[in-house]
Write a protein that binds this DNA or RNA. Structure first.
Length: 595
RNA sequence: GGUCCUAUAGUUCAAUGGAUAGAACGGAGGUUUCCUAAACCUUAGAUCCAGGUUCGAUUCCUGGUAGGACUACCA
């Protein structure tokens, strides 16, 4: 319709002012809610052709347009805005076309599909997942669905940071104080058990350092020479040397962590096609750096450490191999990127990683480009904002980390309380009820996070639990459940829904409003995928659900006596439910049939 | 010190350079013999400051102010 309008407006301007206008001067947008009309032409840019006032110009174009196109049923001019009204007939026949197409996402498919790798989650194996990881996982998974919906081949990957001094710390603490405790013996989820020993290490280490300081050792020296830290470093050296006992312990404790992570991933409803481990890829990175050194791309200091000079690109000197020959974070990321390109020949690689690592990814791209990899241009850091508490960042030292498993559990509990209070699920058995509580609790959590622009930091207040009313996941789920209920009831009443729409029928205002809203869906999906923003789609879901609830409130569907009107309303309801379901699916949110 | 990001109702979030800056929660008030009141309706309440570009700036530019991140031989 926008294209149709543009062409006609161009023609009209030619007729009226004998001017060929550039496409970008014909600015058309959807008319704002509080004005009459469907589409609005902004006439200011056209004044240089009309040599007239905005009002007069709008009036002339509007009148000429209306005379020449039957689809246009009216117009009005307010200041420099020409509001064009499209006939109900056009809207209804347009909707009939939408109903006839079974593929809701057909227009989202891109012409040139790409192979896109999405890296998300990226946990360390010394601690359980927390709220920050939840945002990461939800964004990554939703991006996967969105990009896939647009026809791309998307590979979900995860890079697990499973080696390094931090892992040795939990291993050491377990070895010293664990008394052979296992997830089975203690009943503690594996990742939490390992996390417990990491925390214990930090506590004992701090204690030792303070003890040294009280004996008069200078603070920096005390922190550096506490026996526990020395032991952890020794353990890391043994690990790198392949010490059998240490490797065994490492494998055992990591397997506990993976069992724990898998449960959390499953609860969140996310998964991966390919998991990379830093313990594998850091070696590739080391070789790459050595090769680059030979090629003169990097340089070596006297202490044998290897660096790259990126000052010509506005960045700094960056260390890539330590003086003792061990790898740093950047080293393994280089290796991982090259390995991935070999394995998947990706066009794009999306790193879902927090904005605190912006600099890291600038450097990563620059180094790969320096090494001559043309595909480095396809790397994209999807930089999302931090999740903060009302008093600032989450800090493990202050015990303010919001644990992922706890939060998921609490959300389900809240859903249970609210649902039982409302008492609408009387005839469901316990298992069915639990499933609904799960969907609602998780829906609330996921929507709460995904509706926010990913680039921005967000605030989460743990003491005020996530809402179930207003602009929330459950609101949208509720709207869907209501529509499902209408169709269940309709079936009981023997009302048959016929998929044909009678285009000579007149639609009510709210019905056309809904059609207008439904029409936007595919464009929103395309845009959300193009700009990597699930939030656009989430907010659209809310707008649509809101629109439907108004319609539902003002009109009756099943008790409408005019069969054609009833049928039309059923069709709109049906289509709305499908759009809501698909849109929420793209966000990774499940919909309950009842609630 | 340098680089980057952010700043919108009491709070949490919206707004391709366009009209009277939208929602939600919270506040005040209202709607149920009728398809689910997790809903609907009414109401009060905001663009950090100063310049600039523009017919038009929350949006773009410059300079402040205030937060935050990065600037490790941590990840």
């Amino acid at each position: 319709m926008e294209i149709f309008l543009k062409e006609n407006i161009r023609r009209v301007i030619k007729e009226l002012y004998n001017a060929e206008v550039n496409d970008d001067l014909i600015q058309i947008q959807e008319t704002r809610k509080d004005f009459k009309g469907d589409f609005t032409l902004i006439v200011f840019p056209l004044l240089k052709f009309s040599k007239n006032t905005p009002e007069k110009t709008g009036e002339m174009i509007g009148s000429q347009l209306m005379d020449s196109s039957p689809e246009i049923s009216g117009y009005n001019v307010i200041k420099g805005f020409l509001n064009i009204e499209i006939s109900d007939k056009w809207w209804i026949s347009y909707f009939a076309g939408m109903m006839a197409e079974t593929d809701l996402l057909k227009n989202c498919r891109v012409k040139n599909p790409e192979v896109i790798l999405v890296e998300y989650s990226s946990p360390n194996t010394n601690k359980p997942l927390h709220l920050g990881h939840i945002r990461n996982n939800l964004l990554g998974f939703s991006l996967y669905r969105l990009l896939s919906a647009c026809g791309h081949k998307v590979i979900k990957t995860n890079i697990v940071n499973d080696r390094g001094i931090h892992i040795c710390k939990s291993m050491l603490a377990w070895q010293k104080y664990g008394n052979g405790e296992t997830p089975e013996s203690s009943g503690i989820k594996g990742d939490h058990l390992v996390g417990k020993y990491y925390v214990l290490f930090e506590k004992m280490y701090k204690f030792q350092a303070e003890e040294l300081m009280s004996k008069g050792v200078e603070p920096g020296e005390a922190k550096n020479s506490a026996p526990l830290l020395m032991e952890a470093r020794e353990m890391l050296l043994k690990w790198e040397a392949g010490d059998k006992e240490i490797i065994e312990l490492w494998k055992k404790m990591n397997s506990w962590v993976y069992d724990g992570f898998n449960k959390t991933y499953e609860a969140l409803g996310v998964n991966f096609d390919k998991i990379y481990y830093e313990s594998d890829t850091y070696k590739i990175g080391k070789d790459l750096v050595q090769a680059a050194l030979k090629d003169g791309i990097m340089y070596q200091m006297e202490d044998k450490s290897i660096w790259v000079d990126l000052t010509s690109e506005g960045l700094d000197q960056k260390l890539l191999l330590r003086s003792d020959g061990t790898a740093v974070y950047m080293t393994q990321d280089l290796g991982t990127a090259v390995l991935r390109q070999q394995e998947y020949k990706f066009d794009k690689c999306l790193y879902v990683v927090g904005n605190e690592q912006n600099y890291h990814f600038q450097v990563l791209k620059a180094v790969l480009a320096r090494m001559g990899y043309k595909w480095a241009g396809g790397l994209h850091h999807f930089s999302y904002g931090m999740v903060e508490l009302p008093e600032g960042r989450m800090k493990s030292r202050e015990g303010t980390i919001v644990d992922a498993d706890d939060l998921i559990k609490e959300m389900k509990e809240t859903a249970r309380e609210v649902s039982l209070q409302l008492g609408k699920l009387g005839d469901y058995n316990d298992e069915e009820k639990e499933e609904i509580f799960r969907k609602i609790g998780l829906g609330a959590l996921k929507y709460f996070i995904l509706k926010i622009d990913p680039r921005k930091n967000m605030t989460f207040n743990p003491t005020e639990s996530i809402d179930f009313n207003g602009n929330t996941g459950p609101f949208i789920q509720y709207t869907y459940a209501r529509i499902m209920s209408v169709f269940r009831k309709g079936e009981q009443m023997g009302i048959k829904f016929n998929n044909t729409i009678l285009s000579e029928m007149k639609g009510g205002e709210k019905e056309i409003d809904l059609v207008r809203q439904l029409r936007r869906f595919q464009a929103i999906v395309s845009e959300a995928a193009a700009v990597y923003s699930p939030a656009l789609l989430a907010n659209y879901c809310y707008d649509l659900a809101k629109e439907f609830n108004q319609f539902y409130h003002d009109y009756s569907i099943l008790s409408e006596t005019d069969v054609r009107v009833r049928n039309f309303r059923l069709a709109i309801s049906k289509y709305t439910s499908e759009v809501l379901n698909t849109a929420m699916w793209l966000l990774g949110i499940e919909m309950p049939e009842r609630m």
